[in-house]
Amino acid sequence: MFQFINTLLIGITSGAIYALMALAIVLVWRSTRVINFAQAGQALASTYFGYQALQYIDSFWIALIIAMAGGAILSALIEVIFMRILLKHTTSGAIAGVAPIIATLGLLEIIRTLVTLKWGGADVIVKAPLSNTGFSIGSNTLVFSPMKLAIIAVVTVLLLVFSVIFQKTSIGLSLRASAFSPELARLAGIRVDRIRTLGWAFSGATGAVAGLLLVTNGNGSLSPASLEFSLLLISGFIAAVIGGLESLLGSVVGGVALGIITAFVLMYISDSLFFIAPFVVLLLVLFIRPQGVLGKKGGRRA
């Protein structure tokens, strides 16, 4: 029982981080129909923004907000400078749907290189604001720690803020309308180009939180070559697919589900399955329910 609860809590914590990455991927997918591989690089760079901020200030939480702002600006710039032009110039032929996605792979490497040039290739440490020592129950010590609890709290707050923005404000209505039907959105007077940039900015800010929380959930070490960010991207993508790739709620459900499943596989089956467990989940979802757990059958036009 103790081990079960421990595993569940670990799973929920990493699942919450996957959920943020999935959300970042879905926000871009919905606004631009691009799977943005550069998201891993953007999260990496944003985490370094947070690291840099921590050199001048003490508060991790203010550094987190600075990282979000930096991530949002970086993401908006990528949309305005690269995506807008690529999408305009590749409207027909076999390359049309593919060019922007390949371009994001290129961007991923460019960002990684720039980060290495700026901050060097060696590990730096982002100090967690709270203890990573687990809570104790009687004589047993959980892996679940105050930091992990804070991660779940941050993600929950962020999701609540997002859902208020999306469901209750006219900015949110503009974002949803532009995602579902750009043409009707334009006819309603929405400047869809700007809304698209805003969608990317939200995505960048979300990815920044995912990056910083990922590092502080681990041992705090950060380096441009870190495999963790690539894994974060893959987990986020798989979580987004589980959720149906369209749905914001679905990506959250997908992320948490993936985190829990992976944690249980590692604990109860074998930790050598760490790298392949998410892929097995992806394949199962694609076989059994390709539209995603919360996706609708038939789906929408792409």
């Binding site: 006219s170 209505l173 503009s174 949803r176 309308a177 959105a185 309603a188």
Partner: peptide
């Protein structure tokens, strides 16, 4: 979108 959201969309500007 809901019926009301579709209507609000028309007046969003």
């Amino acid at each position: 979108l809901t019926v009301e959201e579709n209507l609000d969309l028309g007046a969003i500007w």
